[in-house]
Amino acid sequence: MAVETDRGWFRTFMERGGWWRAVAFTAAYLVLYSGAGLLMSALFGDRIADDMFADTATVFLALFLPLAAGSALLAGTVALLGWSRPLFGRQPVPGRAWMWIAPLIVVLAALLRILGTDYGRYTAGVVAMTYAAGLLIGFAEEVLARGIVIHMLRRRGFGELAVMLLSSLLFALMHATNLLSGQPPATVAATMGFTFAFGVAMYLTLRATRFLIWPVLLHAATDPSTFLATGGIDEAATGGTDPLVALAGASVLLYALLAVAALFLIRDRTDPDALQGRP
């Protein structure tokens, strides 16, 4: 009986939606996700190298396992709330033709990084495990930021401009937790600036494609290709020396310009009654 009461309270809390509940849920998720990372460090610290991509075991223990725990938590939350259809089904807000610019930039930037990566720096196991972790990054971060958070904002009747800005801001703030892993504040600040603009691009991708799976997959290609092309998470915000990787770095400016344009072009509003999912 106690379990049913707790589940009922949680469903009520989440289904009421709104920005502060989205913030509270995100904060709770980050605490649990960060806790999983700290647990991995405590249990397997002697097997985790200082360089995240030094060996397959380090990628698995320091990156893949905490992300697997976070992904399982989010998948369980979606199932518990019965939100699989509204999150993964066809989205209720149609996109505009210009929004296809966002996924095009994401795809081109990822391809340039993939082609410009010096794979001789890594073992085959590191590359494979990094891309496996990338799938979990795409799933966890998109289900949270472009799935749960956006759904909660729309349920309270927020206009799509506010939905875009608030979900992207929260997505950027999520990356402040990189300070806990010892990243320099300047790197974290640069990452947060990038992730805000990238979050807008992922929102536009969601609108253009009408399905959450596409932001998940494009995000899953972006992070691991960036990590491997630049040499690691600490260097990911600063670009690389390969010409193709440097060209891919121009995507940061394009995301920023697209975000500014979106401020003037997005005026849609979602009817909260239309958020129950579609077959």
Rank of each mutant, 00 (worst) to 15 (best):
R278Y: 11
L254P: 07
L204H: 03
M40C: 13
M192Q: 10
G45L: 01
M174G: 04
R154Q: 15
F139Y: 13
A189P: 00
G35I: 10
Y119W: 07
P94K: 01
A27P: 01
E160P: 00
A124V: 12
A259W: 06
V163Y: 00
G17N: 09
S34T: 14
I233F: 11
H219T: 05
F139Q: 03
A190V: 08
D268S: 03
Q91T: 09
G8Y: 00
L253Q: 02
T117L: 05
T12R: 06
Y255R: 05
V200Y: 13
H175V: 07
L217Q: 09
Y131K: 00
I114H: 03
G159P: 04
A128G: 02
Q91P: 00
A189S: 05
V78M: 09
T238A: 15
G240V: 10
L112A: 09
L63T: 12
A57M: 09
L265R: 13
L275H: 04
D55G: 02
D273T: 13
R96E: 15
L32V: 15
G193C: 05
D234P: 02
P215C: 11
F44C: 01
L257W: 02
A176M: 14
A27G: 06
F10C: 04
R16F: 06
A22Q: 09
A197D: 10
G239K: 02
I101P: 00
P103F: 03
T205K: 00
S71Y: 08
G232T: 06
T58P: 05
G116T: 02
A36F: 09
A201Q: 06
L73D: 11
A229S: 15
M202H: 11
L169T: 15
L263G: 09
S181G: 09
A172K: 01
F227G: 12
I48A: 01
R155L: 10
A262R: 07
Y203C: 14
A57N: 06
A110M: 05
A42I: 07
P66D: 15
F158D: 12
D6F: 10
G120Y: 04
D50R: 12
N178S: 08
A229M: 05
I48V: 05
A69N: 07
L43C: 09
F227K: 06
T187G: 14
A248T: 10
R21G: 11
P103H: 04
L38M: 11
A220S: 11
M164W: 00
M52G: 02
P86R: 00
L275V: 04
G159C: 00
D118S: 10
G120Q: 01
R156N: 08
G82W: 01
A68W: 10
L228S: 06
G134V: 05
G70R: 05
Y119I: 08
V78Y: 11
A248H: 04
A274H: 13
A24E: 03
M52N: 05
L275W: 03
I48W: 01
L258R: 01
R7N: 12
T195N: 04
P92S: 10
D51Y: 03
L212Y: 12
Q276D: 14
L153N: 05
F227E: 07
M40V: 08
T130N: 03
G199N: 04
L161E: 07
A221C: 13
T117K: 01
T5D: 13
A172G: 12
